[in-house]
Design a protein around this nucleic acid. Structure first.
Length: 199
DNA sequence: CCAAAGATCTACT
DNA sequence: GTAGATCTTTGGG
């Protein structure tokens, strides 16, 4: 039933900047209430593990961030500012805590449901659906209870990444957003000129 | 135990 | 451009 090949674990066994670039153009898919919700990944950020001051893993392994220290290809979902969830995918070999934050999608399937989950009127600006890490999770119904620690390399997990053959044109690199430490590093990557990039 | 910051978004001036 | 909503996690006493 999944229409395109699922991105498999070896894809994620690499440094986060490399995986971040490779994820651009792939499709994030969520199976929700018998319906497919999906969107093309157009904006990501790379977080290195314990060597990266801005990373959640910087201070070492805790109960909150333990998924990051596990094997690659698993979802790390955290709650922030009392109201938003954000989705990362772990990368690098087990024991190394690199990850990629998914920041924006170009909505593809299930637009009506996404609008409902977001609390906006169907048919309004599509950029309001999943441009921004918090919006992205809300649009796909991603929560920590449901998705933290799920294996995104299996379609049956309910959350996975597919490769539909899309080839990224240009990639834009810029500083990461919303952080105070190590903010000068250009580890935010996006599809050049794509209108669904946040900010 | 208490305090403060946080990988955000929305609404309003 | 600035403020408010809202709560988990973490670090200090």
């Amino acid at each position: 039933m999944p229409r395109c090949p699922v991105v498999l674990r070896p894809f994620y066994i690499h440094p986060p900047d490399q995986v971040a670039r490779a994820l651009l153009g792939k499709v994030l898919v969520r199976r929700c209430e018998g319906e497919w919700l999906s969107g093309r990944i157009v904006e990501v950020e790379a977080y290195f593990g314990e060597g990266d001051e801005a990373a959640h893993a910087f201070a070492g392994k805790t109960r909150r961030n333990e998924v990051l220290f596990g094997p690659p290809g698993f979802a790390y979902v955290y709650f922030i500012y009392g109201m938003h969830y954000c989705l990362n995918i772990s990368c690098e070999p087990e024991g190394q805590a690199g990850s990629v934050l998914l920041r924006a999608l170009e909505p593809l399937e299930g637009l009506g449901t996404m609008a409902r989950l977001r609390g906006v009127e169907a048919g309004t600006n599509l950029r309001l659906l999943a441009s921004g890490p918090g919006r992205l999770c809300q649009a796909l119904g991603i929560t920590r209870d449901l998705h933290n620690g799920v294996d995104v390399t299996h379609a049956r997990s309910g959350l996975h990444v597919e490769d539909d053959g899309f080839v990224a044109g240009g990639i834009t690199a810029s500083p990461r957003i919303g952080i105070r430490k190590a903010a000068e590093r250009s580890l935010r990557f996006s599809l050049a000129g794509n209108p669904f990039v946040s900010g």
